[in-house]
Amino acid sequence: MLKIAKYVIYDILRSKVLIAYTLFLLVISFSLFALETDGAKSIVSLLSIVLIIVPLISIIFTTTYFYNSYEFIELLVAQPLARNTILLGEFLGVALSMAATFFIGIGIPVLIYASSSTGMILLLAGIVLTLSFISIAFFASVAMRDKAKGIGLSLLLWFYFSVIYDAIVLAFLFSFSDYPLDRAVIALASLNPIDMARLMVLMKLDISALMGFTGAVYKQFFGSSFGLFYTIGIMLFWITLPLLASVRIFKKKNL
């Protein structure tokens, strides 16, 4: 598995797409920190990058990479190797290189300019978000045989998680606003890794406005140590679940 991961990382490094991505993140985050003297404000701007761009790049890159290395995977399948080893190896390679990219691109500027607990939470949220979207991308690309369809599905999933889902939540809140919704809202947030990451960082950031009576409910939940474990648990769940599903499909798949 590790050997496959190693080859995948070599392959990714050769293609230079990720290097460009790293540079892009570096430029954006350094210029954000340079423009704004207040570190907390730059974190807010970085948050929107982390919530929109990072999942998008992760999911698109992974899907295209998977289809491009389809022949390599076919070759590996012909070897005496278990199929789940092959897929997990591929995942590990992509995940390690993407996480490293994120860490260099956003992590280093954050560590230099805003190494507060908020910055750390932002990094954690970003890395977990990267991993879960890679995992979702694996699911989409294993599920679809056709490359165009696979990329289409990935894009649709990204769009669903970053835009449509929140609109659905808004509609839900609007229709049931007469009921006590605090638990429901926490459950709703758990169903979307982007929302989960956003709340994680928000609990550190916009505490003043969140402190209203509902804010207090969230703060009480997410601010507690149980809440932190819950958040991390749900995020891990979002990494493992699509991956397990893709392993399941890949095992039985007719290549």
Partner: peptide
């Protein structure tokens, strides 16, 4: 205005959808 009418909507703060 939304938050004023339905306080639970505070969970969507800084969401991309809300920005749109």
């Amino acid at each position: 205005v939304l938050v004023d009418q339905m306080p639970y909507a505070i969970m969507l703060m800084r969401s991309f959808t809300i920005d749109l």
